[in-house]
Computed example of a mutant assay.
Amino acid sequence: MEINELERMARAIRRRDLEAVYAAGAGHIGGEMSVIDILTALYFRVLKVYPDQPKHPGRDRFVLSKGHTACALYVTLAKRGFLPEEEIATFLAPHSRLNGHPNCNKVPGVETNTGPLGHGLPVAIGMAKAAKLSGAGYHTYVVTGDGEMQEGSNWEAIMAAAQFGLDNLTLVIDHNRFQQGASLADTNGLAPLRPRLEAFGWEVAEINGNAMAEVVPALEHRASRPYCIVAHTNKGHGISFMQDRVDWHHKVPNKDQYEIALAELSEAL
């Protein structure tokens, strides 16, 4: 897809995500809205994946470490053809395979179970290292939240990636500046993230993570060492009353709010 097509797809995914969260009465809509541009660019432009063969050995690997934003991933996977679009209506329903966190044993296209923060990046580094050992040509991508970067396991993994020279690994940090209950700065202010990653031997780029024209080239870049994209995003991006509001980490809109949000996203389509 070209940039304008990706932008349109991202808006459609945002609208469907909103509908699913509202219908389910639960979700993590703020962080879903912030990461959707990244997911869209990955699945509709960058990733080498095969919806009809989700376990194809040559596929690129993608890990959504911030697994609480699973609904955004499910909608993206459905739009890409990994599962029926009508199945999104079952999000969080009893016996649905579309749980609050992704499950690789149930949902095609999900590479590993995520939810406990600080696990996805270490797993992704294992995938990248496995490719090096076996001579496989796939690339591994992982998206973490910025609050998640407070987990010490991530920094151990970052050291390991540099030690192993994993130039087949791309980390994207969804830097929306808020986590559950507070801002990043008020909890454990890691910013600025770029010099911290560079100090560990990584190549780092900083972009507007809600601007598709910046997201695509950053994701398509290939480095000679582990590569991190610090994606500056907005919590609740695309919905005026949600944007940059910490209470929308996992708040669900009421009927009036839902109609306002739906109208705003519909205008953008």
Rank of each mutant, 00 (worst) to 15 (best):
T170C: 14
D146Y: 05
T144K: 01
F164C: 07
E156L: 10
T170M: 13
H175S: 09
N176G: 07
F178G: 04
Q163L: 15
M159V: 04
G165W: 08
A182F: 09
L184Q: 04
F178M: 15
Q150A: 14
L184F: 00
A161L: 02
L171P: 13
D167R: 07
Q163F: 13
E151N: 12
L184I: 09
E151P: 14
W155T: 04
E148L: 09
R177P: 10
V143D: 05
E156A: 14
L184P: 00
A182N: 14
G145T: 13
S153N: 11
H175D: 13
I173K: 04
N154G: 08
E156F: 10
L184R: 00
F164L: 12
A160E: 08
A157R: 03
A185C: 00
L169C: 02
F164I: 02
G145C: 12
V143I: 15
G152V: 07
G152Q: 04
F178Y: 13
Q163D: 15
L169S: 01
W155Y: 04
Q179V: 14
V172A: 07
A157H: 04
F164P: 11
Q179H: 12
I173S: 07
D186R: 07
T144I: 09
S153Q: 08
I158M: 11
D174Q: 01
G147K: 02
Q180V: 15
Y141D: 10
H175L: 13
Y141H: 12
L184V: 09
D146I: 11
D186H: 02
